[in-house]
Simulated assay, not measured.
Amino acid sequence: MSGVKSDPNTRAVLVPALDDRAAFAVLVKRLAAAAPDAFIVVADDGSMKAPVQAADIAAAGMDGVVLRLERNLGHQRAILTGLNWIMREKPGAAVIVMDSDGEDDPADIPRLLEAMEASGADAVVAERGRRSVPFWFRMFLRLYYAFFWVLTGMRLRHGNFSALAPAAALRIARMDEAWSHYGAAILSARLDVARITIDRAQRIEGRSRMSLTSLVVHGMRSIIVFADRVLARATLFAAGLGAVCAALLVVAAVIKLWGAASPGWFTAAAGLLTVMMIQSAVLALLAVVLAAAGRSAAPPARPDVLALIERVEPARPDGYDEKAQQGRGQT
């Protein structure tokens, strides 16, 4: 598709971008200083107003491509599409995933790679340290982290900024879970994951387009990745609640037999506890049925994510590729 030759020793930097050319033009220059040998892969997520240009990569003296997706898929799906392209065109490449707005600092890439080498981990993720965001955003994140832990029993405090060893990159690229949430897919892949704390840098240009609704949807998608765990924990919670209600019903009966209960108290307490026990049983049964249905259902047909790439525009350090310009002029 692109004419880019495979190089098993390549370190690829994958950047999903949406109408972020001004920020990316600065970011790629920082990448040139921090990782001059990296191959840049931009997954342009259906940009309409300010799409990243391959000329920006070439102007920074770096090699790379811009993958023009045929429509807006969302950052997570753009990442998956880019990973699949890298695994086909650059087999054996280690991959660094980062956002295009500059909040992921290229100067931290060596830290990710050093942590991977020192720990021997399959993947290294950047857990968020200090970040310049509104108070309401920080509060939402804290609630989300707690909610995610309660539902799944796992900790998810990282975003897209991460480094993947070649085998890990290939596994994530083949996972349907990454279609919903890249960060959650890393946890679901049963990889050896190392974590380092990295402060978020300032955005290079503009303001975040993430609304509260977008954040809620993004959080829900991370939980969906662990649907089986959520259903299992819901079953245990329902069973535990039913057991507590049964124990309280016995206690209420003992109090009634002792004659310590006021008239009508035992009837009200027994009725409430019985209703709660029935609801717990129904919840547990529903969770078991949903889990069984999910296990027995045939896996959905895996989409050909590479078919979502409308065209590939190569960039070379010595200048912009003429074929890329001709391809853009024909569309």
Results as ranks from 00 to 15, higher is better:
C245E: 02
P51R: 04
R71F: 01
F226K: 03
L164V: 08
A32P: 01
L236D: 12
E70A: 00
S222L: 08
R21H: 06
A32N: 01
T235E: 15
E322A: 14
V289Q: 06
L306Y: 07
A247I: 09
L248V: 05
S119H: 08
G294C: 03
R171V: 06
L231S: 03
K323I: 06
M87P: 02
R131A: 09
D63T: 09
V65H: 03
L156M: 11
S262G: 12
Y320Q: 14
A146L: 14
E117G: 12
R21G: 04
A178W: 02
D104C: 13
G61F: 05
G74E: 06
P91H: 08
P110C: 07
E313L: 14
P91V: 13
M154H: 06
H218V: 00
R200A: 10
S296W: 04
G259R: 05
A243M: 11
A307L: 08
R68I: 01
A168D: 08
F39T: 06
G92R: 01
S296D: 10
L31K: 02
A22H: 11
I172T: 07
A22R: 13
F237Q: 06
A270Q: 13
V52Q: 01
A167P: 00
V65Q: 03
R209N: 02
A178Y: 03
H218W: 12
D199Y: 01
A297D: 05
I223F: 12
G206C: 09
A292P: 00
E103Q: 09
S162M: 05
E177Q: 15
N160H: 11
S211Q: 03
Y182S: 09
H158D: 06
R203L: 11
A232W: 02
A297F: 00
S132A: 15
D99W: 06
W258T: 10
D176T: 05
A38H: 02
S119L: 09
G129V: 10
L306D: 13
E103V: 15
L248K: 04
Y144V: 06
W149M: 12
A253Y: 09
N72A: 10
